[in-house]
Measured scan of single mutants.
Amino acid sequence: MAAGGDHGSPDSYRSPLASRYASPEMCFVFSDRYKFRTWRQLWLWLAEAEQTLGLPITDEQIQEMKSNLENIDFKMAAEEEKRLRHDVMAHVHTFGHCCPKAAGIIHLGATSCYVGDNTDLIILRNALDLLLPKLARVISRLADFAKERASLPTLGFTHFQPAQLTTVGKRCCLWIQDLCMDLQNLKRVRDDLRFRGVKGTTGTQASFLQLFEGDDHKVEQLDKMVTEKAGFKRAFIITGQTYTRKVDIEVLSVLASLGASVHKICTDIRLLANLKEMEEPFEKQQIGSSAMPYKRNPMRSERCCSLARHLMTLVMDPLQTASVQWFERTLDDSANRRICLAEAFLTADTILNTLQNISEGLVVYPKVIERRIRQELPFMATENIIMAMVKAGGSRQDCHEKIRVLSQQAASVVKQEGGDNDLIERIQVDAYFSPIHSQLDHLLDPSSFTGRASQQVQRFLEEEVYPLLKPYESVMKVKAELCL
């Protein structure tokens, strides 16, 4: 049975990233139509530049190519590739079939990587351009969430054990800070992308030097003109047959890092959902379990974690691919890159769409948070109580021993009897502590235990987050809708 299948058929496997999760716009960027249309555009740009620099290419040939950029006979191309065992030459023939007058000058002087690699770089750039505003929107939604809850005390956790208090907004800023680093890295790697350009079979530009009869300047002009037509500021000066596969490492490393950030955020949300302090959106008709109707599973956060793990592992592909590119190139890269580049971007696209949807509907339960604080705060307040007693004339050592005994009794009630923490009640009825009984409410005010959390939130948002989001103001209103 021949390899390949009808990918629109229910009898043929289709990647869930495309069929179930990723956005239509990201799927289109990695589609065959987008790819092969870009090949034709690159052939047109090459012909236009070659004509401008004096090669015998007519206006009629150029116009014929322009008129057929979208006229792609995919069936013919597939048949040609089956016959020739070469995808680029299959599309040269297919393009030439609908451009008979231009057929002889299509791909003039070029090698397969002229269309293959340059198209990949265009796709990487455009895919990054799709991700950047999506990530900015996630940051914006979380920034709104953090600002609104900047002063809401909550129990902090280290080692997932109760620690000092923080605020809900401050905790959210930990998430935002990681995503801001990801946004900066995505922008950097996007701006650092260079075009492969017009380089020939081993990167020496020998074929173009021959076409222009040894004119170095025209060869350099050709490279520059096509690079500018493709919208790049610069091209690699040095290439082998391909652009260095280190570029793929750079791009997928940034995406993998984004995956790590999203995994951490969504894990926190899942843990908070278990504590009943916070939940992701839950639709009115949504079913959490087929057997347990009360369940409210954090399905979206779980999906993000599941896909983020996949995204983090994909960076190993370009690392290994770059390491086995012998001399000017081997074909070890080809099949692998067809999979890992598309999957990385479709996965990143999915987790950003999902995280935006989550961040637009996060639900906080202040009463649950308050109750958990009441359970733990008495123990945390013991040092403040000791200091207040010393100020009232008591002995630190005597007070410490009193607190120690009462704390152990209260802990026994919590752990052995399943009761509430009654340390404060014990202190309130103990005559030894009568000098500070009137101060206990103040000493137990949760806001006095959150330090500068709310001020940190305000400063972080104003100095770091809002300036970073400013270039994306025009796209901030787009909502994230999930079908599944």
Rank of each mutant, 00 (worst) to 15 (best):
F28P: 01
E425D: 12
P153I: 04
H7P: 11
R141Q: 05
I105G: 07
Q164R: 00
K402I: 08
Q325K: 02
L469G: 03
T38I: 13
L341M: 11
L275S: 11
V115G: 01
L423N: 03
A18V: 11
A230E: 03
L69I: 14
V29S: 05
K66C: 11
V219K: 03
G104H: 15
Q356L: 09
I123Y: 01
S474E: 14
Y34A: 12
F236M: 09
L484G: 11
E376W: 10
S412M: 14
G361A: 14
Q375P: 03
K367S: 10
P24E: 10
G231W: 04
E283V: 05
A90T: 14
E328H: 00
I176G: 03
E302T: 05
A78R: 12
F449L: 05
E220Y: 13
L377V: 07
I339K: 07
T321K: 03
F195S: 03
L131R: 00
Y243R: 00
R374S: 10
G4Q: 15
R296T: 13
N384W: 04
N118L: 05
V465D: 02
F460P: 01
Q439G: 08
R329V: 04
T242A: 09
V324W: 11
K477V: 15
R149E: 12
C172N: 04
A291W: 02
L461A: 04
P298W: 03
A335G: 13
R20H: 01
L132T: 12
L440V: 08
Q456M: 10
R33E: 12
D422A: 06
K415P: 02
V168C: 09
D144H: 13
F232W: 05
P100V: 10
T242R: 00
P133K: 14
P318G: 07
E228D: 10
E277R: 06
Q221E: 12
S12F: 12
L131Y: 09
L443A: 02
S151I: 08
T204Q: 15
L484V: 08
M387F: 08
E50M: 07
P293V: 04
L132V: 13
K367R: 12
P293W: 02
P56H: 12
S112A: 02
Q164T: 04
I57Q: 01
C483F: 09
T202G: 11
D32N: 15
Q286A: 02
H217K: 14
A273Y: 02
L209T: 11
Q356R: 04
S395N: 12
G169S: 01
K233P: 10
L46K: 02
L311D: 01
V368N: 01
T204C: 08
T227G: 11
I386N: 06
G288V: 05
R452C: 13
I436G: 05
W326E: 04
Y114W: 13
G200N: 03
T267G: 11
